[in-house]
C-alpha cells in the first residue's frame, strides 16, 4: 500500500495543493513505481486516498502515456523515434534494439526484464539515438553503448538492489 509506505510523502504532496485532486498524477507516479503498472487495485488505492471515483484514475491512466495499464517489463525502454531523432538514426536504432532483445516493438522480453516502446519526442533530439528507461535518460547511443546499458541493467536486476528512482526522490522532497 503506497498509503502506508509513503505516508509522509503523500501528506506532503497533498499539502502542496489547495485541492486534493491535483495530487492525482504524483500519486499515480508513486503507485506505478510501487506496483510496476497501474493495476486496477493501484487505481482504486489512489482514488481512495483522494476521494475520487476510481473511474477518474482509470481515465487519467488512459490519457497520459507514461502510465501502463498492463504489466510491463521491469525496465521500460522508451525509445524516441520521432522526426528529429529519426533524422539521426532512431528508426534503425529501434530495429537494432528489437533484434537484440528478440521482441517486436511494444513487446516484453521473456525474462520479464525489458519492454521496448517507440515514443514521441523526449526533449533530447540533439543526443539521438536515445531512450529513457524508467524515466532515466540514456543518450548518444549506439550498439555498443546499448549493449553496455543492457548488461548494466541485467546486473542491477540480478543484484536485487535498486537505487531509488527519481519518482521516489522527488516525492521525498514533499516530506519537508
Amino acid at each position: 500500500m503506497i498509503a502506508d509506505k509513503y505516508a509522509e510523502e503523500i501528506e506532503g504532496i497533498l499539502a502542496r495543493f489547495p485541492h486534493k485532486k491535483s495530487a492525482v498524477l504524483p500519486l499515480m507516479h508513486l503507485a506505478q513505481r510501487e506496483y510496476g503498472y497501474m493495476s486496477e487495485d493501484a487505481m482504486r488505492e489512489v482514488a481512495g486516498i483522494l476521494d475520487l471515483d476510481p473511474t477518474h484514475v482509470l481515465s487519467l491512466a488512459g490519457f497520459y502515456s507514461l502510465f501502463h495499464e498492463e504489466p510491463t517489463g521491469k525496465y521500460v525502454l522508451e525509445i524516441c523515434n520521432d522526426l528529429a531523432c529519426a533524422l539521426r538514426g532512431a528508426d534503425e536504432f529501434v530495429e537494432m534494439v528489437c533484434r537484440k532483445l528478440d521482441i517486436p516493438l511494444g513487446g516484453t522480453t521473456e525474462d520479464g526484464l525489458f519492454t521496448v516502446k517507440g515514443v514521441m519526442c523526449l526533449g533530447a533530439c540533439d543526443r539521438a539515438p536515445m531512450l529513457q528507461y524508467n524515466l532515466k535518460f540514456a543518450e548518444h547511443l549506439d550498439e555498443e553503448k546499448f549493449d553496455n546499458l543492457i548488461a548494466y541493467l541485467r546486473e542491477e536486476a540480478a543484484s536485487g538492489e535498486e537505487p531509488p528512482s527519481v519518482v521516489e526522490k522527488i516525492a521525498a522532497y514533499a516530506k519537508k
Binding site: V57, L58, S59, G62, F63
Partner: peptide, 19 residues
C-alpha cells in the same frame, strides 16, 4: 456521480466505468 469517464485520448477515446 462521475462514474463514467473518457479513457484514452484522440481517436481512441472511449467511455469507461470502474464503479
Amino acid at each position: 456521480d462521475p462514474v463514467i469517464r473518457f479513457h484514452n485520448r484522440g481517436r481512441r477515446t472511449e467511455i469507461v466505468t470502474m464503479s
